[in-house]
Design a protein around this nucleic acid. Structure first.
Lengths: 205, 205, 205, 205
DNA sequence: TATGAATGAGACTTCATTCAT
DNA sequence: CATGAATGAAGTCTCATTCAT
């Protein structure tokens, strides 16, 4: 059973993804969520607060994410990196709407609260990459030390660029669900392949 | 000397980059451009048409871009690819405002005219990559055939992700103009490095 | 011990004095009084009824006021007048918030119930002045017969004008509690002085 | 010919007088002034700015007021005082609506801009009274030095109290235009009479 | 070609009150 | 007695566009 509050939240997320923050009116949201217009102010205070709540909600969901990875000691650095990327692509694939909003906000930098959340997330990823690479070099799992910023840009940029192009390719190649699944699988392998090269990782050592 | 029309256009571009399409009012644009409000409807028909005009203007600028590359016969495929990427990163670096708008529009897909322009651009790049790779393979310049979509996502995604993260890094590393120039240079080399690997290109053959 | 109803009443009085009727929301009142919002409708029926209740409450308090004065037979007319004025200034001084609301309502004439209460009060005072003056003239305590309306306007107008200006003077003369007490004492004497003249009352006859 | 802006201004003044600031909606104003709702924002910026404009407008009107009085050298201090009071009562009589609003604002102190204007006005009057009394004492026109604050409270308070009570008296005494004119004339004499006493002015000296 | 006054739609938000519990 | 979720009306303001000049 979904609460009235979450019902509004998810419908708003969908509309914000489609039309952007300014392009979505609370009237539309209320209609989509089948509630009275004033319910939005009632539950969230304002349209902007509702918007921020979406970020808080999704970011809370992904909190456990980073912790798990670093903590686990049964894997070597490469394997950990793979886990991070797998989860990342999975999450992006399953929460397309939210990540659409998120990308737009990254280009906007208008809402301070959200800017802070996004920067923390980015810095969090950089920190993970840093630790994994340093440790991997010490343990001779990796043999090259690439520039951190570009590692992140390559991973994250490739994933999002691929995500955003998917609808066109789907249309162009007349693809269906199967096409999409294969697409994400290939994307995942592509990124791993690039990383192997950039980090100087040799599989069968 | 800049025409009144271009004056409006450039000021609008700046404001759209800062605040998005819906977040920018024609009153702000008219104030920024020091013209009367009704001039915008007068010159461009409507706010939306003005927005589209920005895309047309910038895309016209980059039209010659692709043609040049393919036409030139004094370079091999790898060299051509390098030229494409150099120009691309240069352009992104120098037209940050426009590419901010463009990225946002790629996430939005609301204005059909713009969607068409953007898709054509994307398909244009895919076509260039396709021709270069096929030809390069035939001429034994390249030795691997990577999936086209991911080549594009990697190049374009990495560039934009790096562009968007630059302000944070600049702040974090207390960087200045010099930092920025070096950043773009390194980014360029990073992408070339990745492509070399993905295409199986060997420099000193 | 104060009842829940009175608790709401007094908090509402305070807020109405600060922000006016329309400027005060029942939500604010409920927060200030630490009760649930719906308690106001529950106890008083509506926001407007609550407002009227404040007037009824304060007017009930001052009901005995007039009666006492007329009834007492140990004083002559001048002494009775002095008692009336003393009580009036005291009351105004101690119930500043209510008299702020009252003055505003006297300027507004929107709520019929309140209009009636206020007019009765005004007419009550006029009646008292009339009786005291007539009787005083008959008994040769007073020697002049001033126009009744202006007697009331002068007394009441001076008191309220002085009350309302007090904050400014306090600020201007950097006054404290002592300043305020002296101010009201002087005000009282000032009014008596004026009345003596207007009524032709001679103290040491 | 009255401008559209003034048309709005005067209609707003009337409604604010009847129902107060919060009690008057811009929709009502626009209806009363026969203009579109958005005209109010268009001309004045906001409802509050419109409200302030009314004060500015009326205060500008009365600017010449004080200057004239002090400047003229053909009158002695008592005659000057009479002129001040005559003009004051005239003005109050003819601009009942505005002075209704003004009194309410004096009780409210919410809008800083208006508070400032009102305090300046009050201090201006105090200054005039001060100069006239000091000069009058020096020139032996007056023989008593009453407390300044109460002089002002008595004059201003009596006038406004009488103004506000007029409708009731008019109703009670079944008065018409003639009653009103006589009322203001008597009021004027009443105030002069009181002042004569308070200042120790002897007419036939 | 250029202006700026004027329009009407639609935006977000707050409010007093009701109703089911 | 008491709660607080829910409602719908009404409020102010901003906006893109039009029109007379």
């Amino acid at each position: 059973m979904i609460s009235k509050e979450e019902n509004i939240l998810f419908n708003a997320e969908k509309l914000f993804a489609e039309k952007g923050f300014e392009g979505t009116s609370i009237r539309e949201i209320s209609k989509e969520a089948n509630v009275n217009v004033s319910m939005i102010s009632y539950y969230f205070g304002s349209k902007e607060k509702l918007f921020e709540k979406i970020f808080e909600f999704r970011m809370n969901e992904s909190l456990s994410f980073a912790k798990d990875v670093i903590a686990d000691n049964k894997m070597n650095e490469w394997e950990k990196l793979i886990v991070v990327i797998n989860r990342y692509t999975d999450r992006v694939k399953n929460l397309k709407t939210f990540y659409l909003i998120m990308q737009r906000e990254q280009l906007t930098n208008k809402n301070e609260h959200i800017v802070k959340v996004l920067n923390e997330s980015k810095m969090g990823f950089l920190e993970i990459y840093k630790q994994l690479i340093e440790s991997g070099l010490k343990n001779k799992v990796f043999t090259k030390r690439p520039r951190l910023e570009f590692i992140h840009s390559t991973i994250s940029g490739t994933i999002f660029s691929a995500l955003n192009s998917l609808p066109i390719y789907k249309k162009f190649y007349k693809g269906d669900e199967k096409y999409e699944n294969l697409y994400f699988e290939d994307l995942n392998n592509h990124i791993k392949n690039v990383l192997k090269y950039l980090l100087g990782y040799e599989e069968n050592k």
